[in-house]
Amino acid sequence: MPLMLMISAAVYGGAAGLLVPRPAYRLAVEPGEAWRADCPGGHPVTGPARGWLGPGRCRACGPYGPRAVVTALVSAVACAVLAAATGARPELAVWLAVVPVAVLLAVVDWRVRRLPDVLTLPLAAGAVLLLGLAAPSARAAGSWGGAVLGGLALGGFYYVLYRINPEGMGLGDVKLAFGLGVPLGWYGWAILITGAFAGLLLGSLYGCGLLLRRSVRAEGRNDGLKQAMPYGPFMIIGVFLGVLLGAAAAP
Rank of each mutant, 00 (worst) to 15 (best):
A88L: 14
W35T: 02
A80M: 07
Y25K: 03
S75A: 14
V98K: 12
P63Q: 11
G47V: 07
L82P: 13
A83K: 15
A28S: 15
L92C: 11
C58G: 05
V69K: 03
L73I: 00
T86K: 05
V45I: 14
G62L: 13
C79W: 04
R67Q: 10
A72R: 04
Y64E: 13
A28Y: 10
S75M: 00
A60P: 00
C58S: 06
P31Y: 06
G47N: 11
R67G: 10
L96F: 04
A76V: 12
A60S: 12
P40A: 12
Y64H: 03
A72G: 02
Y64N: 10
V98Q: 15
C61W: 08
L96A: 05
A83S: 13
C58A: 06
A93L: 13
C61K: 03
A84C: 12
L53M: 13
G87I: 09
R50F: 06
R89E: 14
G32Q: 01
G65Y: 05
Y64Q: 12
G51E: 03
E30A: 15
T46P: 04
A28H: 12
V29W: 14
A72I: 04
V69Y: 11
T86V: 05
P55R: 00
P66D: 02
V77I: 15
A34R: 07
V94S: 09
V29K: 10
A34I: 05
P63T: 11
G51Q: 02
V74C: 01
P66S: 03
A34P: 02
R89S: 15
T71D: 01
G32T: 08
G65W: 06
Y64W: 14
A37V: 15
P100K: 11
G51R: 03
P63W: 09
G62K: 04
G41D: 04
G56A: 07
P31H: 07
P63F: 09
C61S: 04
R50P: 01
V29R: 13
P31K: 05
R36D: 04
G65R: 01
R57D: 03
A76N: 02
V99C: 13
G41V: 07
C79E: 08
Y64L: 14
R59A: 15
R59Y: 09
R36K: 09
V29C: 12
P90Q: 00
H43K: 02
V98P: 02
A83V: 03
V101R: 07
A78D: 07
A78Q: 10
Y64T: 14
V99M: 13
P100S: 14
S75W: 08
V70P: 00
V94L: 08
G32L: 03
G54F: 03
L27K: 08
P66A: 09
G42H: 03
D38H: 13
G47T: 04
R26Y: 05
A84Q: 15
R26F: 08
V69G: 08
V74K: 00
L73N: 02
V29M: 07
A49R: 04
A68E: 08
